[in-house]
Simulated assay, not measured.
Amino acid sequence: MKRIITLDIFDEKGASLGKKRFYTTLDKHKSLNQWWVNFKDSVNEMLGLISNYPSDFQNQQKVCLLSKPLARYCLNITQSNLIPFSVYFSVRHCIKATWINDRDQFLYPNNKWAQDSVFQSDCLAFMLFHGQHRITSKVGINHFIPFSEKEIGAQEAFESHFMQDFLQGKIKHDCATNKDSKQSLFGDDDIAFIPTKPLTFSQEAQEVLNAGKELFRHYHTQAKEDKDYNPNASLYDIKAHFQGFNDKGKMNPPQKADDEVYKQKLGELNYALKALAKKIEVKVYEYGFLLP
């Protein structure tokens, strides 16, 4: 029997912040990280890595995309698990961590998420442009550019067109068996989440893609004559170009950028991301990733 304890919440001045629920049988639920490992793939080509830490809000900022394993716990992102890992990333980042939800646990979802293709596409769009996306072409090939060279005015051909092809349903998949995969719950093999037709996005996700395109286009317009111009620049690389780094090697905040147009376009992207986060948040509760 599920038991719920509901308490009133107040801030330091005594103003009401609503109510908070606690579930006494939460330990009987499987965690999100037990779901996450279902999609482990050591067969297909690695596109990047996703870090993993205990599935609660206090570890939220440790979950990121990487080009090389900088974290203790990482799994390879491949064409077969890109969608589930996008869902994992977005579920963990679409709701801001606060002192109220700090210890809330992310859970093993019900199966409804696997039939919601728009939710999956929205999570991919969210992950592609989130601040914890730290893929960089400085380390290896950047497979995460969702646009064509023409769309963003790149001066040279990209080293990889994977993401464009994935979004258009043009990935040619083989039938290699992934012995590490446990995806039989959702499909018979590791091609269950490789689209065979163009992805469909919500209006909110399309706004993110459009804002991201404008940001990429501004970089290629502004930096094409620079000696360090990088046609394969990732989102992280573009931010580094405009914001620079401090003497401790940490990227400066956007306010440090000299380019006002860049700051405007980044602001527009972040605004669109917040709207998309709200849309994804509804599904997080509907599909059981969090208890309400």
Rank of each mutant, 00 (worst) to 15 (best):
I50K: 01
T196I: 13
Y219E: 05
Y229P: 02
D8F: 07
K239T: 06
P254Y: 06
D226W: 08
P69Y: 07
T25A: 14
Q61C: 06
P69V: 09
G153Q: 03
W99I: 11
Q61S: 13
A176G: 09
S51R: 08
P146C: 11
I83L: 00
N246F: 12
Y108R: 05
D247A: 03
S42T: 15
D165R: 15
N230F: 04
H218Y: 10
P69R: 13
L290W: 03
F129Q: 01
Q168L: 13
D180H: 11
R217P: 00
D188C: 10
L266V: 03
S51A: 14
G169I: 12
K274Y: 01
G249L: 02
D41C: 07
N44R: 15
Y271H: 14
F193A: 05
D116H: 03
N178W: 10
G267Y: 05
A223K: 10
F158D: 03
A205L: 02
N232C: 10
G249I: 01
Y287M: 02
G244C: 09
P231Y: 10
A114D: 07
I77Y: 01
F186N: 04
S202N: 01
K179P: 03
I5A: 04
Q183N: 14
S160N: 12
S42I: 09
K2Y: 06
K279W: 00
L7G: 07
N210P: 01
R3V: 06
N210D: 14
L199P: 08
K2R: 12
F166E: 01
D259N: 15
F216Y: 15
K213F: 07
D190W: 10
P198K: 02
A114C: 11
Q60E: 07
M163V: 04
T98P: 08
L273E: 01
K62W: 08
A154N: 07
W35R: 06
H29I: 05
K179M: 13
D11Q: 09
K179R: 15
L291F: 09
N101A: 02
A275Q: 04
P254S: 10
K19L: 13
T98R: 09
L215N: 00
Y285K: 02
H143W: 06
A114R: 09
P253D: 03
F158N: 02
D116A: 05
D259K: 12
Y229V: 04
S67E: 11
N252H: 14
T78E: 10
V91M: 04
K256N: 11
F289H: 04
N52M: 12
A97R: 11
T25M: 10
L128N: 00
P231C: 11
L49N: 04
W36I: 07
Y108P: 07
S184E: 14
K197Y: 11
N33R: 10
K182N: 05
Q222P: 01
E225K: 13
